[in-house]
């Protein structure tokens, strides 16, 4: 039953990543933070290098660097930096810096492929606990702050008038994003976490009539993509992480073609 055990672990890891990334991804879409998500995810590679270099837990290493990057970007955007360029510089610099830092690691040769593209089939039982804690953390933050986050997303002034502090909500999103990155790293890899954040919500958007339904729909789409991607990976021996993203993209295209025919093309 060895196959069953590693498959179940992969499935559990994938579903947890789906749960962590999908509702948060809705805010990434609504707030147009897709590139922000990429920068945070790319910083995780630097976290992997640091964790390996200093013999720390990779989960903690990625969590800390991702949070650091997300905070840094938040501070810069608060100071009125042009975000598109800033994020472009930071996202790619963090990735390159991580790759260079990893090359300095002596002793065991480090294979970064697993962290760049994910390696869901080698998830260890011990790693699942960290992922479960991270997923619960993201879901708790989302549930606790949902109305406030939504209000601050729709209008910061409206939020302020209701005693909701937009900066605080931004910080909570930043923390949730770092957690989701740490959870998803082993599943789809740093390069494709951005896809896991954006594609399921974009798919759910086609049919969703409320923010809540879009979040739930995004979880369902992400979970379907995980199952289908894993299945495809086992059947055709394709890499699991990219297969999950391809499955999500396929669902997106399918939703668009069905939604485009049946729905009333709600104004965009």
């Amino acid at each position: 039953m060895i196959i069953d055990a590693f498959l179940l672990r992969a499935l559990a890891a994938g579903l947890m990543a789906a749960l962590a990334a999908a509702p948060l991804g809705c805010f990434v879409v609504w707030r147009r933070m897709a590139y922000f998500g990429d920068a945070t995810a790319h910083a995780a590679i630097l976290g992997v290098a640091l964790a390996l270099g200093f013999d720390l837990s990779i989960f903690v290493g990625t969590l800390v660097t991702a949070f650091g990057m997300a905070l840094f970007v938040s501070v810069l955007s608060g100071r009125g930096w042009a975000m598109d360029t800033t994020l472009g510089v930071l996202a790619h610099s963090a990735l390159a810096l991580g790759l260079v830092a990893a090359s300095f690691l002596t002793g065991t040769r480090v294979d970064l492929t697993a962290f760049l593209f994910g390696d869901i089939l080698t998830v260890r039982p011990s790693e699942l606990w960290g992922m479960a804690a991270g997923t619960l953390g993201v879901l708790a933050l989302m549930a606790w702050r949902w109305e406030a986050l939504l209000t601050a997303t729709i209008s910061e002034d409206l939020a302020l008038s209701l005693n909701i502090k937009p900066e605080r909500e931004r910080l909570i999103l930043t923390l949730a994003l770092a957690l989701a990155v740490a959870v998803s790293l082993k599943v789809v890899g740093a390069l494709l976490i951005g896809a896991l954040l954006v594609v399921p919500p974009a798919t759910a958007r086609v049919f969703a009539r409320s923010p809540e339904r879009m979040a739930i729909g995004a979880v369902i789409v992400a979970a379907l993509a995980v199952v289908a991607g894993l299945g495809a990976s086992l059947t055709w021996d394709t890499p699991a992480g990219p297969s999950i993203v391809v499955a999500a993209a396929t669902l997106f295209v399918a939703a668009l073609s069905v939604g485009g025919l049946s729905s009333d093309r709600r104004a965009r």
């Binding site: 609504w30 147009r32 997303t153 209008s155 910061e156 409320s210």
Partner: peptide
């Protein structure tokens, strides 16, 4: 206080009735 903001930042991808 009932506050009416200048305008809302509604992304087209936010389904809000």
């Amino acid at each position: 206080v009932g506050y009416v903001p200048q305008k809302l930042h509604l992304d087209a991808n936010l389904p809000l009735s």
